[in-house]
Amino acid sequence: MIRLIAIVVSLFATTALAEKMKLAVTTSFHNSGLSDLLLPVILEDTGLEVQLLIVGTGQALRLGEAGDVDAILVHSEAAEEVFVENGYAPYRREIMYNDFVVVGPQTDPADIASADTAVDALTRIAIIKAPFVSRGDASGTHKKELFLWTSTKLDPKLFGTWYNAVGAGMGASLNTASGLGAYILTDRASWLNFANKGELDLLFEGDPILFNQYAYLPIDSKRHPHVNIQAQRLLESWLTSKRAETLINGYTVDGTNVFVFNAFR
């Protein structure tokens, strides 16, 4: 009982003094588990309470445009450049990268495990029309997938029923793929953290085309005067610090490194 009261009291007492900012991040970043490691350290080092809005890249960009968050951390370079060009953020700052992998049924009917490139792997799937799950939600992962299809010179719009655009987040899409025994493109971190792997296995990785660059974009205070500039700067300098580098490079899931820090200082 005393413990219960203590919990209730502490709920209202904590974090009342900390400076707060809202950061929109992609589902894949959160699902990697890295944010659970970084946020408490950020609070400790800088006194900054970062409130995460976990959304798709498309929605993260919209939240940024509307000024509903102070900064965004996403991975879709082309869209980010348009965002900066349109004046929503003064610049983009690259922080780290991870990579995409293709997972699929252990039996690997399309034999993508022996493919040379990512484009080759996808082509093999399309040829035998093996079930494939696409995020279909304008997220960074989805954009990457569409970019790869473009390189195969195939048009996903013309695909048959084997191509399932589910319009959902990474986890939900992985759940669908697991249920269907389908191939899917996913970021490595989400895959490693995913608990419902079922019959799925990692089948293709390593092609440099699959690298996935994360960038930090503070929202322009000229356009949205209410954004917390102080917090924006504080977070940016922490994310590019030596301490962040150690933590990010040292982060592993199941003994595998998932992120590589690459911010310029």
């Binding site: 309470e49 409130q51 995460l52 987040g169 986890g171 992985l174 759940n175 419902n196």
Partner: peptide
């Protein structure tokens, strides 16, 4: 927005954990 320690409630937490595959 399902912000941890700010606006997360039971249903949004359920959606989040489902998304992570932690059934």
């Amino acid at each position: 927005g399902n912000i941890d320690h700010a606006t997360r409630v039971l249903t949004t937490a359920i959606a989040l954990e489902t998304g992570k595959g932690d059934f």
